[in-house]
Design a protein around this nucleic acid. Structure first.
Length: 263
DNA sequence: ATGTCATGATAAC
DNA sequence: TTATCCTGACATA
């Protein structure tokens, strides 16, 4: 269940484990057998994260593209252990085995495929090349709600449902606020919060927005909570852009003049 | 055993 | 907007 922060964490982790190494590539589950055969024995240059996508750069091979989706994950273990049968992809090198389970995408991409992938993604707050001005332009021009815009990977790449809920709460913005009504100041605050949370989460490997909190549930202000961790008000939930939105009605007021779709 | 949901995304309507 | 796909985790029975 990875958002951008975890994907970046994985990219760094896997780069540090396997970059410059010759890698044994297989597909125990079989659905990536052909691609695995093409990569088997190649030297990995690095693993790059773009939003929620992983790109594996090899010497003299096509790019490997992985998207974890909702349930995908990597298992890290010793190569001596038997392969997990449902692993779509298994990478072995440098004394470790990385096994990919339940991804939505695991494919080889030629340069044009890579280019079109990059082209359909908006700026990624975790990357140095991210340009917030581009995001602002898209937001300011849109009548869609900021809650929907944050999940649109062509607007911002890497934000998922937890980050959306937490960032909007931290920035004190009501999720239904239309992009074109947000204003520069609120956008700037939102971008700052999104970036800060993602950087911290990508270092830690998980999202903890409430200072000092330990566990997952306690570490969030509104996501999957009954009450707002800041003020204790009952958290409201509704579906926004096909995902459950969590917001505090006290910390995140609607703009006064905005007429409201009530749900 | 069965149902429901999920930190995701897409194709089709 | 909805239906659908992926597959795991958890709740309910």
């Amino acid at each position: 269940m990875p958002e951008g922060h975890l994907v970046h964490w994985l990219a760094r982790r896997q780069t540090s484990l396997l970059a410059g190494r010759r890698v044994e590539v297989t597909s125990p589950q079989g659905r990536f057998r052909e691609g695995a055969a093409r990569l088997d024995g190649a030297v990995l240059r690095r693993v790059e994260a773009v939003g929620k996508h992983l790109l594996y750069h090899w010497e003299d091979r096509e790019m490997l593209h992985v998207h974890l989706g909702q349930g995908g994950k990597f298992l890290e273990g010793a190569p001596v252990q038997p392969p997990v049968p449902q692993a779509r992809l298994r990478l072995v090198g440098n004394g470790v085995a990385l096994q990919l389970v339940a991804p939505t995408v695991c494919e080889l991409l030629d340069p044009s495929g890579v280019a079109s992938l990059r082209a359909r993604l908006g700026p990624d707050p975790l990357r140095d090349d991210a340009d917030p001005e581009r995001v602002w332009q898209a937001v300011a021009r849109s009548r869609r709600s900021i809650g929907a815009l944050l999940l649109d990977q062509s607007v911002v790449a890497g934000v998922g449902n937890v980050l959306r809920a937490e960032a909007l709460n931290l920035a004190r913005i009501h999720p239904e606020t239309p992009g074109h009504r947000l204003g520069r100041r609120r956008f700037a605050r939102l971008w700052a919060e999104v970036t800060r949370i993602m950087v911290e989460a990508s270092e830690r490997g998980r999202i903890v927005t409430v200072p000092g909190a330990a566990g997952d549930a306690e570490g969030r202000f509104v996501y999957r909570r009954d009450r707002c961790a800041r003020c204790g008000t009952a958290v409201q939930t509704w579906v926004l852009a096909a995902r459950t939105m969590y917001a505090c009605p006290r910390c995140q007021r609607r703009l006064a003049s905005v007429s409201h779709p009530d749900s």
